[in-house]
Design a protein around this nucleic acid. Structure first.
Length: 259
DNA sequence: ATGTCACTCGTTGAGTGA
């Protein structure tokens, strides 16, 4: 089974690239972030025509997440529990029946958090605290579980072209990293880091010639429960997609499993 | 040194968020 994440940065603006990539790669499950669409406006039929089931959790203008899958999507969960006042659409989860059991797939769009002297940063940290609590429960199920998406978090110096320039940003500073480490220490395996030590950027800003200069960062991740990590066969960043026409500023990241 | 995009409101650009 091939499971992928892609921050699409506007599903309607990127529909051609999305369709091309789905047809070319034929992933089994894809989670999207920043669909920037309400559920009613999601281009369902064009993606269904490619053989995918769709579940969305959208909102107007910003954020919004979705699951595309060739398999039926069961047990859909929308939104991160723990704060009834949080109206931002940033989490969608589904369960897929596979040979010998099931795999649970949770797609997230973790808050950016900039600027750090604003309530956006406190929201990011609180969201990460809630995510840790959520994952503690999920991991206690001791089943294949994949937490993937745009984490808006740079895990290590190798994951950023210029660590000194980025240090202090909401994506790369102590309060954010402390929570990411706490999340990882629940027992997750970083799929890309399980297969390579090389820089593996997943995002290049639209500005300042970032793509041309390869000024990237690695912020899109697939984190695997022990039961998922045991079945990991491969993982890859689809870097070439950043060079397509009308690209997103993020590229797809995928992992292949023996289930 | 500089450099971009999508979306909304509501209209021919400005404001916002990333």
């Amino acid at each position: 089974m091939r499971i992928a994440t892609w921050n699409i940065n506007g599903v309607k603006a990127r529909l051609e690239a999305l369709k091309t990539w789905l047809q070319q790669e034929q992933p089994d499950v894809v989670v999207l972030q920043e669909i920037k669409s309400v559920d009613e406006a999601f281009p369902r039929s064009e993606i269904e025509d490619l053989g995918y089931n769709i579940e969305t959790h959208g909102q107007k203008s910003w954020n919004g997440v979705a699951i595309l899958s060739k398999l039926p999507i069961e047990d859909v969960q929308r939104g991160l529990p723990g704060d009834n006042d949080d109206t931002q659409a940033r989490l969608i989860e589904g369960v897929f029946s596979v040979e010998g059991g099931a795999v649970r797939v949770c797609g997230i769009y973790l808050p950016n958090g900039n600027p750090v002297d604003s309530e956006k940063f406190t929201y990011k940290l609180a969201w990460m605290d809630r995510l840790i609590a959520y994952c503690e429960q999920r991991l206690s199920l001791e089943e294949p579980f994949v937490l993937l998406g745009d984490f808006n978090l740079i895990p290590a110096p190798v994951d950023v072209h210029d660590p000194e320039e980025w240090w202090g940003d909401a994506l790369y500073r102590p309060e954010s990293l402390e929570r990411f480490r706490k999340l990882m220490n629940l027992g997750f395996t970083d799929a890309i880091r399980a297969v390579t030590d090389e820089p593996s950027y997943t995002f290049w800003d639209f500005q300042a010639g970032a793509w041309r200069r390869n000024n990237g960062i690695r912020i899109d991740h697939l984190l695997l429960s022990p039961q998922a990590a045991d079945r990991l066969e491969a993982a890859a960043v689809h870097k070439d997609v950043r060079g397509w026409d009308k690209p997103s500023d993020h590229v797809p990241v995928e992992a292949t499993f023996a289930f």
